[in-house]
């Protein structure tokens, strides 16, 4: 019931605190959630990917996150500095279905909040919950070290409940992945992101310089 109560609160909140105020709330919730999950340290990428597969990392709260180990990200020297990961099912999908069956329609504020976020922050949200979610990932990545190096999360693409998609081309260029390839991943996954070593000299970033 908690999730449906949250949805009913969204409309209420956006009327009282405004759409921008709700976005601020959501960003704080994402940040707090990541902080409360605590820090993690791994010896290397294989141990992190195993922990992810076994549901032991903070990212596992999102559901089934798959490490696409065939998609290693390398730096200018050819060293592996990250991987691409995909979430099988959108975190918000069960809630959307439960609202559909018990209440009816999602409140209008859901789209209004997502649209406002896309215009003022990053054009990647397909629903209001993406705001919490994306912030959560960015903060969790900072709390995880691999071989002593903190991580950075790069959001790449997501697919909404109605089939609409958002792709962050800037981040795709950084890691040198083709847009159409990521789009094909969205056929099978709801959300695609990359985790890279913070400060790594990625090919896309170096060529921009």
């Amino acid at each position: 019931m908690l999730d449906i109560a949250l949805v009913s609160l969204i409309q209420d909140m956006s009327e009282k605190a405004g759409v921008e105020g709700t976005i601020q709330y959501w960003l704080r919730v994402g940040e707090n959630l990541a902080k409360r999950m605590g820090k993690e340290a791994y010896m290397g990428w294989p141990s992190f990917n195993v922990a992810l597969r076994e549901g032991r990392t903070a990212f596992s709260i999102e559901g089934n996150v798959v490490a696409l180990t065939d998609l290693a990200i390398t730096d200018v020297d050819g060293d592996v500095v990250g991987y691409i990961y995909a979430l099988e099912k959108c975190v918000f999908e069960p809630t959307i279905l439960r609202v559909r069956y018990s209440v009816g329609q999602l409140p209008k504020a859901d789209k209004q909040i997502a649209d406002e976020y896309n215009m003022t922050y990053k054009d990647i949200a397909v629903c209001n919950f993406c705001i919490i979610h994306v912030k959560f990932r960015e903060e969790v990545a900072r709390n995880i070290t691999i071989a002593g190096q903190p991580l950075e999360a790069l959001h790449l693409a997501d697919r909404g409940f109605t089939g609409d998609t958002k792709i962050d081309e800037e981040n795709l260029n950084k890691i040198g992945i083709n847009k159409e390839y990521v789009r094909s991943l969205l056929r099978n996954y709801a959300c695609v992101f990359a985790l890279v070593m913070k400060g790594a000299r990625l090919k896309g970033e170096v060529s921009e310089e």
Binding site: Y25, E62, G63, P94, I132
Partner: peptide, 25 residues
Amino acid sequence: QISGNESILDNPMVDIATYLFLEDI
């Protein structure tokens, strides 16, 4: 019957996010 919502489990992240939001308030 699906109307009871028992067959659709909510995602833990949404539940916990709601609790944290309430704690923030």
